[in-house]
């Protein structure tokens, strides 16, 4: 699953995407002229201050918002067609597990909705629980797990139906740094194993640099892309890569990019 060995396959393509919310105080330009191509197997992070449209852009890819201008395609389809064909799994900041369902029951939920049969569901639940290192916890209820474990269960839920795209909206934003480090490492591991294409919203510079193959720096009013940084880091990244000179230089570049975006405020 080394994307570099194959010709890059575009999975998500955005051209001149704009999204304007009409509010009582006048229009808000959440996104303006966003151009971006995400290739098969990319790990793309979106970083920027609040209001820069990073979450809105992710939601637009997922057809949870509709662009008011420009074109966007997911797997060659419109975002809504892609949503209907269950092209992506979405992970929110909160785990959003149902307290009345066990962990296995929660992972089973999208599978039931999509009509997988019982034996298949059981097999898939086993597999994704293993992927997120929660094997044996299927029978537990959400309240019995720590916040980090709950979030891993919600990632397992997003993986269970084998969508090729994983969209993550600040999935570790509510967790403490130690847990976050562990989950970042686990997520990279999972990405290497599954070859998924990942869109990842964050406002942590180290997180973006550690995880991504590309870092998209965005800025607000109007929400737009100010810089796209290709990461020179190898796909195989131990946690201590964060002490390397390359990593620090990259983090510096991202920080500069964020500062430039603020220049016209």
């Amino acid at each position: 699953m080394q994307g570099a060995e194959h010709p890059a396959q575009p999975v998500i393509q955005a051209q001149g995407v704009s999204l304007t919310f009409q509010t009582a105080d006048g229009p808000i330009h959440a996104l303006k002229d966003v151009d971006l191509t995400i290739n098969q197997g990319d790990f793309v992070s979106f970083i920027g201050p609040s209001g820069c449209g990073k979450t809105t852009f992710l939601r637009t890819i997922a057809a949870l918002e509709n662009a008011t201008g420009g074109r966007i395609s997911v797997n060659g389809q419109s975002p809504d067609q892609a949503r209907r064909s269950r092209a992506y799994g979405y992970v929110f900041q909160a785990p959003g597990l149902y307290p009345w369902r066990s962990i296995a029951g929660n992972i089973s939920l999208p599978l039931e909705i999509m009509g997988f049969d019982k034996a298949d569901r059981r097999q898939r639940i086993e597999r994704v629980l293993e992927l997120v290192d929660l094997a044996g916890f299927g029978g537990k209820y959400p309240w019995q797990l720590s916040g980090g474990m709950q979030q891993r269960a919600s990632i397992a839920r997003a993986l269970a139906f084998d969508a090729d795209i994983l969209l993550m909206d600040e999935p570790f934003g509510a967790l403490d740094e130690i847990v976050r480090d562990k989950l970042n490492e686990a997520l990279l591991d999972l990405w290497r194993k599954t070859g998924k294409t990942i869109g990842f919203v964050t406002h942590s510079i180290p997180e973006a640099v550690y995880l991504s193959t590309r870092i998209v720096v965005m800025s607000p009013r109007p929400g737009r892309i100010t810089k796209i940084i290709e990461s020179p880091l190898p796909r195989n990244r131990p946690l201590d890569i964060r002490d390397s000179a390359e990593f620090i230089a990259l983090a510096h570049e991202v920080r500069e990019g964020l500062r430039e975006g603020h220049g016209d405020d």
């Binding site: 949870l64 949503r83 209907r84 979405y90 929110f92 909160a94 959003g96 999208p110 909705i113």
Partner: peptide, 12 residues
């Protein structure tokens, strides 16, 4: 909204 968005993402 998040719970409903999740359902929507699964095309429920």
């Amino acid at each position: 909204a998040m719970q409903l968005d999740l359902m929507r993402s699964w095309n429920a």
